[in-house]
Protein backbone atom coordinates (compact mmCIF):
# COMPACT_ATOMS: atom_id res chain seq x y z
CA UNK A 1 0.00 0.00 0.00
CA UNK A 2 1.20 3.46 -0.70
CA UNK A 3 1.55 5.83 2.16
CA UNK A 4 1.80 9.41 1.11
CA UNK A 5 2.49 11.68 4.02
CA UNK A 6 0.90 14.70 2.57
CA UNK A 7 -1.28 16.88 4.75
CA UNK A 8 -4.77 16.67 3.39
CA UNK A 9 -5.62 20.24 2.51
CA UNK A 10 -9.30 19.38 2.56
CA UNK A 11 -9.47 18.54 6.25
CA UNK A 12 -7.37 21.59 7.14
CA UNK A 13 -9.92 23.81 5.51
CA UNK A 14 -12.91 22.05 7.04
CA UNK A 15 -14.68 24.05 9.72
CA UNK A 16 -12.79 23.16 12.89
CA UNK A 17 -15.55 23.51 15.43
CA UNK A 18 -17.71 20.87 13.73
CA UNK A 19 -14.81 18.55 13.42
CA UNK A 20 -13.89 18.89 17.08
CA UNK A 21 -17.46 18.23 18.15
CA UNK A 22 -17.53 15.12 15.99
CA UNK A 23 -14.27 13.96 17.47
CA UNK A 24 -15.52 14.52 21.00
CA UNK A 25 -18.67 12.58 20.27
CA UNK A 26 -16.63 9.77 18.78
CA UNK A 27 -14.34 9.47 21.79
CA UNK A 28 -17.30 9.60 24.20
CA UNK A 29 -18.95 6.75 22.38
CA UNK A 30 -15.71 4.79 22.54
CA UNK A 31 -15.54 5.35 26.28
CA UNK A 32 -19.05 4.03 26.88
CA UNK A 33 -18.39 0.98 24.75
CA UNK A 34 -15.26 0.23 26.76
CA UNK A 35 -16.87 0.91 30.14
CA UNK A 36 -17.94 -2.69 30.98
CA UNK A 37 -14.42 -3.91 30.29
CA UNK A 38 -12.94 -1.12 32.37
CA UNK A 39 -15.19 -1.99 35.30
CA UNK A 40 -14.40 -5.66 34.99
CA UNK A 41 -10.67 -5.00 34.93
CA UNK A 42 -10.83 -2.65 37.89
CA UNK A 43 -12.90 -4.96 40.09
CA UNK A 44 -11.26 -8.25 39.22
CA UNK A 45 -7.75 -7.20 38.33
CA UNK A 46 -6.64 -3.83 39.63
CA UNK A 47 -8.13 -4.09 43.11
CA UNK A 48 -6.92 -7.65 43.84
CA UNK A 49 -3.53 -6.66 42.49
CA UNK A 50 -3.43 -3.69 44.82
CA UNK A 51 -4.28 -5.99 47.75
CA UNK A 52 -1.45 -8.35 46.76
CA UNK A 53 0.90 -5.38 46.51
CA UNK A 54 -0.07 -4.16 49.98
CA UNK A 55 0.35 -7.64 51.45
CA UNK A 56 3.79 -8.04 49.94
CA UNK A 57 5.05 -5.22 52.16
CA UNK A 58 3.38 -6.60 55.31
CA UNK A 59 4.73 -8.95 57.98
CA UNK A 60 3.72 -12.49 58.91
CA UNK A 61 2.95 -12.78 62.59
CA UNK A 62 3.62 -15.76 64.77
CA UNK A 63 0.21 -17.34 64.31
CA UNK A 64 0.30 -17.35 60.51
CA UNK A 65 -1.76 -14.18 60.23
CA UNK A 66 -0.64 -11.00 58.53
CA UNK A 67 0.15 -7.71 60.27
CA UNK A 68 -0.51 -4.85 57.94
CA UNK A 69 1.28 -2.39 60.19
CA UNK A 70 4.99 -1.79 59.90
CA UNK A 71 5.65 -2.03 56.19
CA UNK A 72 8.94 -3.46 55.11
CA UNK A 73 10.89 -5.07 52.28
CA UNK A 74 11.72 -8.23 54.21
CA UNK A 75 9.67 -10.46 51.89
CA UNK A 76 11.43 -9.10 48.83
CA UNK A 77 14.79 -9.57 50.48
CA UNK A 78 14.01 -13.25 51.00
CA UNK A 79 13.90 -13.77 47.25
CA UNK A 80 17.69 -13.60 47.26
CA UNK A 81 17.83 -16.71 49.45
CA UNK A 82 19.47 -19.67 47.65
CA UNK A 83 16.42 -21.93 47.77
CA UNK A 84 14.16 -19.27 46.31
CA UNK A 85 16.74 -18.35 43.72
CA UNK A 86 17.08 -21.98 42.71
CA UNK A 87 13.35 -22.31 42.24
CA UNK A 88 13.15 -19.03 40.33
CA UNK A 89 15.97 -19.98 37.96
CA UNK A 90 14.62 -23.50 37.54
CA UNK A 91 11.24 -22.06 36.60
CA UNK A 92 12.81 -19.60 34.18
CA UNK A 93 14.91 -22.33 32.62
CA UNK A 94 12.02 -24.76 32.20
CA UNK A 95 9.79 -22.01 30.77
CA UNK A 96 12.56 -21.06 28.37
CA UNK A 97 13.09 -24.69 27.36
CA UNK A 98 9.36 -25.15 26.86
CA UNK A 99 9.21 -22.04 24.68
CA UNK A 100 12.14 -23.12 22.50
CA UNK A 101 10.80 -26.65 22.04
CA UNK A 102 7.33 -25.31 21.22
CA UNK A 103 8.88 -22.93 18.69
CA UNK A 104 10.88 -25.69 17.03
CA UNK A 105 7.84 -27.95 16.75
CA UNK A 106 5.29 -25.26 15.90
CA UNK A 107 7.17 -23.33 13.22
CA UNK A 108 7.44 -26.09 10.62
CA UNK A 109 3.90 -27.16 11.40
CA UNK A 110 2.52 -23.61 11.11
CA UNK A 111 4.38 -23.16 7.83
CA UNK A 112 2.97 -26.41 6.52
CA UNK A 113 -0.50 -25.35 7.66
CA UNK A 114 -0.24 -21.89 6.11
CA UNK A 115 0.77 -23.27 2.73
CA UNK A 116 -2.10 -25.79 2.44
CA UNK A 117 -5.40 -25.31 0.66
CA UNK A 118 -7.97 -23.46 2.83
CA UNK A 119 -10.15 -26.54 3.27
CA UNK A 120 -7.26 -28.64 4.59
CA UNK A 121 -6.08 -25.73 6.74
CA UNK A 122 -9.39 -25.46 8.54
CA UNK A 123 -9.53 -29.17 9.27
CA UNK A 124 -6.01 -29.10 10.65
CA UNK A 125 -6.74 -26.01 12.74
CA UNK A 126 -9.63 -27.88 14.32
CA UNK A 127 -7.19 -30.69 15.18
CA UNK A 128 -4.98 -28.12 16.87
CA UNK A 129 -7.93 -26.93 18.93
CA UNK A 130 -9.39 -30.33 19.85
CA UNK A 131 -7.34 -30.71 23.09
CA UNK A 132 -9.05 -27.56 24.43
CA UNK A 133 -12.33 -29.43 24.46
CA UNK A 134 -11.10 -31.51 27.38
CA UNK A 135 -10.30 -30.12 30.79
CA UNK A 136 -6.66 -29.16 31.24
CA UNK A 137 -6.43 -31.02 34.54
CA UNK A 138 -7.82 -34.19 33.01
CA UNK A 139 -5.34 -33.99 30.17
CA UNK A 140 -2.49 -33.68 32.63
CA UNK A 141 -3.67 -36.73 34.48
CA UNK A 142 -3.81 -38.53 31.16
CA UNK A 143 -0.10 -37.82 30.76
CA UNK A 144 0.46 -39.18 34.22
CA UNK A 145 -1.05 -42.44 33.08
CA UNK A 146 0.96 -42.46 29.87
CA UNK A 147 4.24 -41.72 31.62
CA UNK A 148 3.52 -43.73 34.76
CA UNK A 149 5.39 -46.83 35.93
CA UNK A 150 2.89 -49.22 34.39
CA UNK A 151 1.93 -46.88 31.61
CA UNK A 152 2.01 -47.53 27.88
CA UNK A 153 5.32 -45.70 27.44
CA UNK A 154 7.22 -47.89 29.89
CA UNK A 155 5.51 -50.99 28.55
CA UNK A 156 6.59 -50.12 25.04
CA UNK A 157 10.20 -49.41 25.93
CA UNK A 158 10.33 -52.61 27.98
CA UNK A 159 8.85 -54.58 25.13
CA UNK A 160 11.45 -53.16 22.76
CA UNK A 161 14.16 -54.08 25.22
CA UNK A 162 15.10 -50.48 25.92
CA UNK A 163 14.60 -50.85 29.65
CA UNK A 164 12.29 -48.87 31.87
CA UNK A 165 12.26 -45.12 31.67
CA UNK A 166 11.02 -43.27 34.64
CA UNK A 167 9.85 -40.09 33.05
CA UNK A 168 7.11 -39.30 35.52
CA UNK A 169 8.00 -36.91 38.35
CA UNK A 170 10.99 -35.43 36.56
CA UNK A 171 11.75 -32.12 34.93
CA UNK A 172 11.51 -33.87 31.56
CA UNK A 173 7.96 -34.84 32.35
CA UNK A 174 7.15 -31.25 33.33
CA UNK A 175 8.60 -29.83 30.11
CA UNK A 176 6.79 -32.49 28.10
CA UNK A 177 3.53 -31.60 29.81
CA UNK A 178 4.07 -27.87 29.35
CA UNK A 179 4.99 -28.27 25.66
CA UNK A 180 1.93 -30.40 25.17
CA UNK A 181 -0.30 -27.94 26.99
CA UNK A 182 0.89 -24.73 25.39
CA UNK A 183 1.82 -25.84 21.86
CA UNK A 184 -1.43 -24.51 20.36
CA UNK A 185 -0.62 -21.07 21.75
CA UNK A 186 2.57 -21.15 19.70
CA UNK A 187 1.02 -22.62 16.57
CA UNK A 188 -1.85 -20.18 16.23
CA UNK A 189 0.05 -16.86 16.21
CA UNK A 190 2.78 -18.38 14.03
CA UNK A 191 0.19 -19.65 11.60
CA UNK A 192 -1.50 -16.25 11.52
CA UNK A 193 1.82 -14.51 10.86
CA UNK A 194 3.05 -16.91 8.19
CA UNK A 195 -0.29 -17.12 6.47
CA UNK A 196 -0.19 -13.36 5.89
CA UNK A 197 3.16 -13.48 4.11
CA UNK A 198 2.91 -13.28 0.34
CA UNK A 199 4.27 -16.54 -1.03
CA UNK A 200 5.70 -14.64 -3.96
CA UNK A 201 8.27 -13.10 -1.60
CA UNK A 202 9.79 -16.52 -1.03
CA UNK A 203 9.81 -17.09 -4.78
CA UNK A 204 11.46 -13.71 -5.26
CA UNK A 205 14.12 -14.67 -2.75
CA UNK A 206 14.73 -17.99 -4.50
CA UNK A 207 14.86 -16.19 -7.84
CA UNK A 208 17.43 -13.77 -6.39
CA UNK A 209 19.86 -16.61 -5.71
CA UNK A 210 18.72 -17.31 -2.17
CA UNK A 211 18.94 -20.97 -1.11
CA UNK A 212 16.08 -22.47 0.87
CA UNK A 213 17.82 -21.72 4.13
CA UNK A 214 18.80 -18.18 3.08
CA UNK A 215 15.21 -17.49 2.07
CA UNK A 216 13.99 -18.69 5.44
CA UNK A 217 16.62 -16.69 7.29
CA UNK A 218 16.28 -13.44 5.31
CA UNK A 219 12.63 -13.35 4.31
CA UNK A 220 10.33 -15.83 6.04
CA UNK A 221 11.72 -15.53 9.57
CA UNK A 222 11.94 -11.71 9.76
CA UNK A 223 8.46 -11.37 8.28
CA UNK A 224 6.99 -13.91 10.69
CA UNK A 225 8.79 -12.37 13.69
CA UNK A 226 5.61 -10.85 15.15
CA UNK A 227 4.16 -14.37 15.32
CA UNK A 228 7.36 -15.80 16.81
CA UNK A 229 7.35 -13.16 19.54
CA UNK A 230 3.63 -13.41 20.22
CA UNK A 231 3.77 -17.20 20.42
CA UNK A 232 6.86 -17.17 22.62
CA UNK A 233 5.25 -14.83 25.10
CA UNK A 234 2.00 -16.77 25.09
CA UNK A 235 3.98 -19.92 25.92
CA UNK A 236 6.68 -18.49 28.17
CA UNK A 237 4.44 -16.57 30.56
CA UNK A 238 2.01 -19.34 31.49
CA UNK A 239 4.91 -21.84 31.62
CA UNK A 240 6.72 -19.62 34.09
CA UNK A 241 3.76 -19.49 36.43
CA UNK A 242 2.50 -23.00 35.70
CA UNK A 243 1.02 -24.77 38.67
CA UNK A 244 -1.12 -27.68 37.54
CA UNK A 245 1.36 -29.42 35.22
CA UNK A 246 4.39 -29.30 37.57
CA UNK A 247 2.17 -30.45 40.44
CA UNK A 248 0.83 -33.45 38.57
CA UNK A 249 3.83 -34.46 36.46
CA UNK A 250 6.75 -32.99 38.39
CA UNK A 251 6.28 -34.52 41.79
CA UNK A 252 8.01 -33.30 44.90
CA UNK A 253 11.52 -33.14 43.44
CA UNK A 254 10.88 -30.30 41.05
CA UNK A 255 9.20 -27.46 42.84
CA UNK A 256 8.50 -24.59 40.53
CA UNK A 257 7.55 -21.02 41.19
CA UNK A 258 3.79 -21.55 40.85
CA UNK A 259 3.75 -24.39 43.37
CA UNK A 260 6.08 -22.53 45.68
CA UNK A 261 3.79 -19.50 45.78
CA UNK A 262 0.80 -21.70 46.53
CA UNK A 263 2.76 -23.34 49.32
CA UNK A 264 3.53 -19.95 50.84
CA UNK A 265 -0.14 -19.03 50.94
CA UNK A 266 -1.67 -22.35 51.95
CA UNK A 267 0.95 -24.35 53.83
CA UNK A 268 3.55 -21.95 55.20
CA UNK A 269 0.84 -19.32 55.72
CA UNK A 270 3.32 -16.63 54.80
CA UNK A 271 1.09 -14.38 52.76
CA UNK A 272 3.49 -11.44 52.50
CA UNK A 273 6.21 -13.64 51.03
CA UNK A 274 3.77 -15.30 48.64
CA UNK A 275 2.56 -11.88 47.58
CA UNK A 276 6.11 -10.64 47.01
CA UNK A 277 6.92 -13.70 44.89
CA UNK A 278 3.77 -13.16 42.85
CA UNK A 279 4.80 -9.60 42.24
CA UNK A 280 8.28 -10.51 41.09
CA UNK A 281 6.81 -13.11 38.74
CA UNK A 282 4.43 -10.55 37.37
CA UNK A 283 7.26 -8.05 36.85
CA UNK A 284 9.16 -10.60 34.77
CA UNK A 285 6.07 -11.23 32.66
CA UNK A 286 5.42 -7.55 32.28
CA UNK A 287 8.91 -6.98 30.92
CA UNK A 288 8.30 -9.76 28.40
CA UNK A 289 5.01 -8.27 27.33
CA UNK A 290 6.45 -4.80 26.95
CA UNK A 291 9.24 -6.19 24.78
CA UNK A 292 6.60 -7.91 22.68
CA UNK A 293 4.56 -4.80 22.11
CA UNK A 294 7.58 -2.67 21.31
CA UNK A 295 8.97 -5.26 18.93
CA UNK A 296 5.54 -5.91 17.49
CA UNK A 297 4.92 -2.21 17.03
CA UNK A 298 8.13 -1.87 15.08
CA UNK A 299 7.71 -4.79 12.75
CA UNK A 300 3.98 -4.78 12.16
Amino acid sequence: MTVISEPSSESAEATPQFEKAAQRKESRRGFFLALPSYLYLIIFFVIPLAIVLVYSFATRNRFGGTDLSGWNFASYERIAEPIVRTILFRSLWLAFLTTIICLLIAYPFAYFLATRRPAIRNVMLVFVMIPFWTNFLVRNFAWRVILGNDGPLTKTTEFLGLGTHELLFSQKAVVLGLVYGYLPFMILPLYAAIERIDGQLIEASRDLYGSGWQSFRNVLLPLSMPGVIAGSILVFIPSLGAYVTPEILGGAKTTLLGSYIVTQFLTARNWPFGAALSFVLMAVMLVGTVIYFRKGGRTL
Binding site: D198, Q200, E203, A204, S205, Y209, S211, Q214, N218, T299
Partner: peptide, 26 residues
Protein backbone atom coordinates in the same frame (compact mmCIF):
# COMPACT_ATOMS: atom_id res chain seq x y z
CA UNK B 1 17.84 -15.42 -14.96
CA UNK B 2 15.93 -12.97 -12.79
CA UNK B 3 12.28 -12.10 -12.57
CA UNK B 4 10.25 -8.95 -12.15
CA UNK B 5 7.15 -10.25 -10.42
CA UNK B 6 3.62 -9.24 -11.19
CA UNK B 7 3.06 -7.28 -7.98
CA UNK B 8 6.80 -6.69 -7.71
CA UNK B 9 7.13 -8.90 -4.60
CA UNK B 10 9.45 -6.38 -2.96
CA UNK B 11 10.58 -7.37 0.52
CA UNK B 12 8.46 -5.17 2.81
CA UNK B 13 10.89 -5.39 5.73
CA UNK B 14 13.87 -4.17 3.71
CA UNK B 15 14.77 -0.74 2.39
CA UNK B 16 15.09 -0.01 -1.31
CA UNK B 17 18.87 -0.37 -1.06
CA UNK B 18 18.56 -3.71 0.76
CA UNK B 19 15.96 -4.92 -1.72
CA UNK B 20 18.19 -4.10 -4.67
CA UNK B 21 21.23 -5.62 -2.97
CA UNK B 22 19.41 -8.81 -1.97
CA UNK B 23 20.55 -10.97 -4.87
CA UNK B 24 24.19 -9.89 -4.50
CA UNK B 25 24.07 -10.54 -0.76
CA UNK B 26 22.69 -14.03 -1.35
Amino acid sequence: VNTVFQNYALFPHLTVLENVGFGLKM
